[in-house]
């Protein structure tokens, strides 16, 4: 076997690298196309909601005052959950939601940066002081789901979690004010 001329050797290396770069380019293009396709065809997008709120006064009045926290069913049947993420707990600690029905989750923080996810679902958002974090979802399975804080928020971060109680539609009974609380077990 004859030894390759150094220039040929360089060209072979260049050819291999270009082939690899082409393959990686195809992969990136395929993944990006899939993301764009699912976004346009079935509306798979990251939660995006730019809505400001004053973190110093949000607990005093308005949407995130204590009386308004928890699950509310509006006159139009919309299910809206409002919760405050604060050091080191979610208020309320338990959230009741119906299965198989669109739910809007709204969160605000009066102190530092928090984050949350609900296990087994795509709900996953940061809660930035000064902004309302909003996520829309449909819970498909009933049961208790864990909702931990996933953004380090201080020494008690690991103790900061809540429960999302997903109940069957027929057991989701709002009271006269349209409020729903977790069932005591």
């Amino acid at each position: 076997m004859t030894e390759l001329h150094p220039e040929m050797h360089e060209r072979r290396i260049l050819g291999t690298e270009l082939l690899w770069a082409f393959g990686v380019g195809v992969l990136i293009a395929a993944v990006l196309s899939m993301i764009v396709f699912t976004a346009l065809s079935i509306g798979v997008n990251p939660p995006s909601n730019v809505e400001r709120i004053d973190p110093k006064t949000l607990h005093l009045s308005g949407e995130f005052a204590e009386d308004n926290l928890g699950t509310t069913v509006g006159a139009d049947g919309r299910v809206v959950v409002r919760a405050v993420a604060t050091q080191f707990m979610f208020v309320p600690r338990c959230i009741a939601v119906p299965a198989g029905r669109p739910v809007t989750l709204r969160f605000a923080s009066p102190d530092v940066l928090h984050g949350l996810l609900i296990t087994g679902t795509n709900v996953n958002t940061m809660v930035v002081p000064g902004y309302v974090a909003q996520v829309h979802t449909v819970f498909t399975r009933t049961g208790d789901l864990l909702m931990p804080c996933h953004e380090y928020c201080g020494l008690g971060h690991s103790e900061m979690w809540a429960t999302v109680q997903v109940v069957p539609e027929d057991q989701f009974q709002p009271n006269s004010e349209g409020r729903v609380s977790c069932a005591q077990r």
Partner: peptide, 13 residues
């Protein structure tokens, strides 16, 4: 994971 887990869980946007 994208096709069998993420997509079936539905949109959250």
């Amino acid at each position: 994971i994208y096709l069998l887990v993420f997509i079936p869980r539905g949109s959250v946007g």
